[in-house]
């Protein structure tokens, strides 16, 4: 049984305190919506949980049963999607997928790439360059990359940003599956997205 424990997380940028004593504990089947106005620290919190930013104080630990996981193990279990994250412009979608698959220790043949692309609604566009994609298509490809490792912990910052109606349906499906088999954390200030998660954590900045 996997678990995420964040204890008294504080983050400051210069004199400004962005996060103050945030504590969370989430296990398999838990889903959390982090809400709050712009600048309240939602993205910062998700980045800290994903291991992309160090907290100024406090700890974030991942456990399997009671064993604390190392950075490398954690990397295999966590996926994060955010608006400030980008894939490689000068690679095609298939090349991007294949590259991140190798880094995740996964074999992807042409057929599997096609299936993944179908899953996120990009079927037949695997040989297009990432820079030629629209912002919504880029967001869908980020989902494809994030799901390569079947993440136990899926962290989504503004999960439906840039997506059209079909894209939002794809994301709803991904979120439903994740809630059944893992941990989901969503950062959003869209009221209609609060329902993606069972629990809510409000940040007031």
């Amino acid at each position: 049984m996997y678990r995420l424990d964040a204890q008294n997380v504080k983050k400051t940028f210069g004199p400004r305190i962005v996060l103050r004593d945030v504590s969370l504990s989430l296990g398999i089947g838990d889903s959390l919506a982090v809400t709050g106005p712009n600048g309240s620290g939602k993205t910062t919190l998700l980045r800290i949980l994903a291991g992309l930013t160090l907290p100024s104080r406090g700890t974030v630990d991942f456990f399997h049963e009671d064993r604390k996981l190392g950075r490398s193990e954690m990397r295999r279990l966590v996926s994060y999607i955010g608006p400030e994250l980008a894939l490689y412009d000068s690679l095609t979608a298939a090349e991007n997928l294949r590259f991140f698959a190798v880094l995740r220790g996964i074999t992807l043949d042409r057929g599997l790439i096609g299936k993944i692309m179908e899953m996120v609604g990009l079927g037949g566009r695997e040989d297009d360059f990432y820079h030629a994609y629209s912002s919504g298509m880029k967001q869908r490809l980020k989902y494809a990359v994030a799901l390569l490792n079947d993440p136990v912990f899926l962290l989504l910052d503004e999960p439906t940003a840039n997506l059209d109606k079909d894209g939002k349906i794809v994301v709803s499906g991904i979120i439903s599956r994740q809630k059944e088999r893992g941990v989901l954390i969503v950062a959003t200030n869209e009221k209609e997205e609060y329902g993606f998660a069972e629990k809510r954590y409000r940040l007031d900045g």
Binding site: A50, G51, L52, R75, V78, S79, Y80, G82, E84, L85, A86, L87, Y88, F100, L103, R104, V145, N149
Partner: peptide, 9 residues
């Protein structure tokens, strides 16, 4: 901005 996804994976 690809450093982030590289750090993650």
């Amino acid at each position: 901005k690809t450093a982030m996804v590289l750090r993650l994976t």
